[in-house]
Write a protein that binds this DNA or RNA. Structure first.
Lengths: 242, 242
DNA sequence: CGCGTCAATATTGTATACAATCATGTTGAT
DNA sequence: ATCAACATGATTGTATACAATATTGACGCG
């Protein structure tokens, strides 16, 4: 699949590590949610998921518990799991925190970022550009992973962890509220961020990042088109993606 | 929002909610770890825990997965769980992030904090003072919960979530590296923080918070006294604490 | 005496079975 | 026809059983 240059933005697993079954389910569900294939509010029936991954409910439950701990799945006692539905209030709260975290990332990178890091960023943006044609889930994911890559380049595991979580939740928010994900502008803005980082100008870099995040947030306008899709077809696609 | 003036800083469960068994195990283990009754590196055998709580391994595993997601338990495939052992490098990383998060908390509180909030803080400090006599696990926990309470008073769920997680991990760090937890000075510093917040002087309040965190971090000096305690006696105490 | 090999044991990973709770649709009375 | 009570089926919570892997200790060899 993707050789992910040892580890991609999402890859915590090191090579040669045999994924447990709950791990497989976890990753697939997570990806499906973040790519907005599974939309907020979608019921996640344990039996359905177990059947489609050919595993037992035990493994499914473990995955759901993890996703719940990350805040992208809601888990109500005796009523099962569903993709989290952030409220508008939560959305604003999360975006505010995201601005703070990513401003910190930028400040650290302006001080620290080396040529190798710039190269990785540019490489990532090239991937984003390549994915633009399909307007699909891939570009959605890559847009988020750019920010995670930025956090990783700070070298701070803790900061990366938080950025990863908050980016996930923002994806969920966009999935819920944004009319359409139009990632092309984002790629442009990502290029600008890289340039600002190279210029070593903290104020400018921070400003551009904040403007970028504002632009992302602006796309979140109420649009409560709701339906209950059957998740079978979706899981079909994610069962063998890894 | 919801009347959580009824519940303490750690309480997410609302009243009359029947705790599932894995929830009970989760809370007990978490508390035991944060009160440093279970020290970093301690093996958490599923069978042992299941026996002591009179539940099946299923429930125990669910709790361990959650704790792992919060970063206070390590989970290695086929090798079981143990209390996380943060390295010195991770410790510094986490404290740096903590300073940033809590500075943000202070900035928000200087702008927002009302009389009711001050009252809750003072009440909490009184609890801390009352707990000082026993020098025990209670004072350790209360010291951490003061910071969580501060975060809650900002009204930001997301910020609270992150502060809670990072305070947990800092407890773990202190458990691993600090020679002795001497919480009496902390209480004094907490009082100062409240005063600074009341003064509405952002710069001062932030400075005092950062000094406080530095003081906490300073206690973390290498001291690798290691032993493998049997966790039975410890779990005995936590099985009926809730 | 040190050290590697292998069997026996213990522990974890996963599946299945059972119990408890919830959702749904039917029946019957007003 | 409306609504309540109940029975039935579906879904989740928990326990147990089995399979896979790791740990331990004994044994034999150098």
């Amino acid at each position: 699949m993707f050789g992910r240059s040892l580890i991609g933005p999402l890859g915590e697993a090191t090579l040669s590590e045999k994924s447990s079954r709950s791990e497989v389910v976890y990753k697939a569900l997570r990806q499906a949610i973040l790519e907005q294939a599974l939309r907020p509010g979608t019921k996640l029936s344990e039996d359905t998921i177990a059947d489609h991954f050919k595993v037992s409910r035990t493994s499914v439950r473990a995955a759901l518990v993890r996703l719940n701990a990350e805040g992208i799945v809601d888990l109500r006692v005796n009523k099962g799991a569903c993709v989290a539905e952030p409220t508008l209030e939560e959305a604003r709260d999360i975006f505010a925190l995201r601005r703070m975290l990513e401003a910190e990332v930028i400040r650290r990178l302006v001080a620290d970022l080396d040529a190798a890091g710039v190269k990785r960023l540019q490489q990532h943006v090239r991937q984003e550009e390549a994915a633009l044609t399909d307007h699909g889930p891939l570009s959605i994911r890559l847009a988020g992973e750019f920010h995670i890559l930025l956090a990783e380049l700070t070298g701070s595991q803790a900061l990366t962890r938080f950025v990863r979580e908050i980016v996930s939740r923002c994806s969920l928010i966009l999935a819920r509220f944004a009319r359409l994900h139009s990632p092309e502008c984002a790629v442009d803005e990502h290029v600008q961020i890289i340039r600002a980082l190279q210029s070593r100008d903290t104020a400018t870099a921070e400003r551009i990042m904040l403007e970028h995040l504002d632009a992302v947030e602006l796309r979140a306008e109420l649009d409560t088109g709701k339906e209950e899709p059957d998740i079978s077809a979706i899981l079909q696609r994610y069962a063998r993606k890894g």
